[in-house]
Amino acid sequence: MDFRLSAEQRALRDGTRKLLEGRFGRQALRAAVDGDVGGVGGGGVGRGGRVGGGGCIDRALWRELGAAGLFGLCLPEAEGGVGLGLAEAVLVFEECGRALVPGPFVATVLAAGEVPGAARGETVVTAPFGGLVPWLDAADVVRGDVAGAVALDSVDPLTPLHRLPAGASAPAPVPRTATLLYAAEQLGSAGRTLEMAVQHAREREQFGRPIGAFQAVKHLCAQMLVRVEVARAAVYAAAVTGDPDETAAAKLLADEAAVQGARDCLQVHGGMGFTWEADVHLHLKRAWVRAELSGERGEAEERLAATL
């Protein structure tokens, strides 16, 4: 047993981080959020931060990530994929969550090998998850029944959402791999908000010292790290075993780490944390969206209770 990352896995993680930092760094993130939001960016905030023209996929970025093998990670090499396992996919998705890259990555990865062009990043694929459909208007291919889907005013400025009509048949269960990949994104986001909180706590001074020297702030950060590391153990283990119960546990713990982590990060940032300008709200809003897309919380809890 050696639960640490292998040298290859560390290289994959570092390489993905570097690629995303270069291609979708903070400037690109802010341009995606503010540049396309008619009348909202920088100035007055619309209701919760609605998406204006932000519902567009950056096709060049998408193709580039496809060329880097991001969508065909788990597809055998003979079928044009990279031939890696779920553990590697989880590491890559952790980086996507960290960078807040927008787009229906999970649905597209699941479609790789089945929908032409998906693995290469030429075809953008979406699918309904848990009664919601992300990026419906921007996608080339929709897998699953989305008849009567109604657009909603998405809380996340970088994830347009449709809801399936109420009263229709119960939504199909979220595929286990989708739940796991969303959990990996949550983990990446939680790790990032922890870094942001720690950096701010080190730099921001009040009462003549960095606020991170005060235990009240220090302990918030320590608890963030504890949640990240517990979630990391759960997500990585679920990726290695592929076990559906461990995947449900990974979802619960990663959702907790991402949502509570973003909220604590917001708190550490004080007034700045409440602004549109700070990135914290983007992490919180995306974490809320992922927590819904990866399956209903109660279902995961019931599944785990049934194992007892």
């Binding site: 517990v230 759960a234 995961a300 785990l304 209770a305």
Partner: peptide, 10 residues
């Protein structure tokens, strides 16, 4: 109880 199963598993 389901949450605790997740907790102790992790």
């Amino acid at each position: 109880l389901g949450c605790l199963a997740a907790e102790f598993g992790a």
